[in-house]
């Protein structure tokens, strides 16, 4: 049996101030699949992603990558750290944190430089990535002069330039206009077709519906509320209502008050 690419076993994480980040969560990510972690604000999506990315470490439970326990000690090993960071990329929700270099070009070059590629190879990768995402015109701009959508694209470009096999994406469509959201969904489709593994944290049901092979739903108690195929979970209105991903909506039809869970994914009959 092939070991999962990433695996979290009953992980619990608390923030330094004692607040729970994630509680007793077990997740397994197979190579090549597209997993979507759905949850309301502050349900623990980012925490779970950061645990899988080896950026924070659980108080209880274990996280494994390629069947090796992910810990501060294992990531001290230069060879393992380099292999892990090359194979697992992370897109931060806060693009200002992710774009720390002076120009777009330097930001995209940062990751490939850490892989000890030759300068020519780094330049080739950067230029191809810029061209792939249509960012060549802003290559020499500093990040503070970019719009929110451009920053998101540059952050994705910075991630793709390393060419990781697994991409952990934290709210990739937040702050994007509808056209850019569509662009992201199409890009995710292309990445899946190339065999990349995607783990996407979002509360956008549309995005989940379009890109997920499998969905994990986090509750507001920071525990996993459900796991399964998107066709089943995204149509389970009671579940989505209980985890605050859809809301009750009241309106009047023919003089009578009509109440139903509201989500733009679902049609409902007024008869």
């Amino acid at each position: 049996m092939v070991a999962p690419l990433l695996q979290a076993e009953a992980v619990t994480y608390h923030y330094p101030d004692g607040r729970a980040g994630i509680v007793e969560a077990s997740v397994s990510v197979a190579e090549g699949e597209s997993l979507v972690i759905l949850g309301a604000n502050a349900s623990g999506k980012t925490t779970l992603l950061q645990l899988l990315a080896g950026l924070i470490f659980p108080a209880r439970g274990t996280v494994r990558a390629f069947d090796i326990v992910l810990s501060e000690q294992s990531l001290q090993d230069g060879d393992f750290a380099r292999t892990f960071r090359q194979r697992v990329g992370f897109l931060f929700q806060d693009t200002d944190a992710m774009l720390f270099s002076a120009t777009v070009y330097d930001d995209i070059a940062f990751g490939p430089l850490q892989l000890d590629l030759t300068p020519d190879e780094v330049r080739r990768r950067v230029e191809e990535t810029l061209s792939l995402l249509g960012l060549s015109a802003i290559a020499q701009q500093p990040p503070h002069q970019l719009s929110g959508g451009e920053k998101k694209k540059v952050a994705l470009a910075a991630l793709l330039a390393v060419s990781p096999g697994a991409l952990l994406l934290d709210e990739p469509t937040s702050g994007l206009d509808p056209r850019s959201q569509r662009w992201f969904v199409e890009l995710a489709g292309e990445l899946r077709a190339m065999g990349k593994t995607l783990v996407t944290a979002t509360h956008d049901l549309h995005v989940a519906d379009e890109i997920a092979d499998r969905v994990i739903v986090l509750g507001e108690d920071h525990r996993i509320a459900a796991e399964g195929p998107p066709e089943r979970l995204l149509r389970d209105l009671d579940l989505l209502l209980s985890v605050n991903l859809v809301h009750q909506h009241a309106h009047i039809h023919d003089g009578r008050v009509h109440v139903h869970p509201h989500s733009h994914l679902h049609a409902h009959d007024h008869q």
Partner: peptide, 16 residues
């Protein structure tokens, strides 16, 4: 710093 680590930074600055 987390973003730098996630992109493979291992304490040795490199520039093009």
């Amino acid at each position: 710093y987390s973003a730098m680590l996630a992109r493979g930074y291992r304490g040795e600055p490199k520039a093009l």
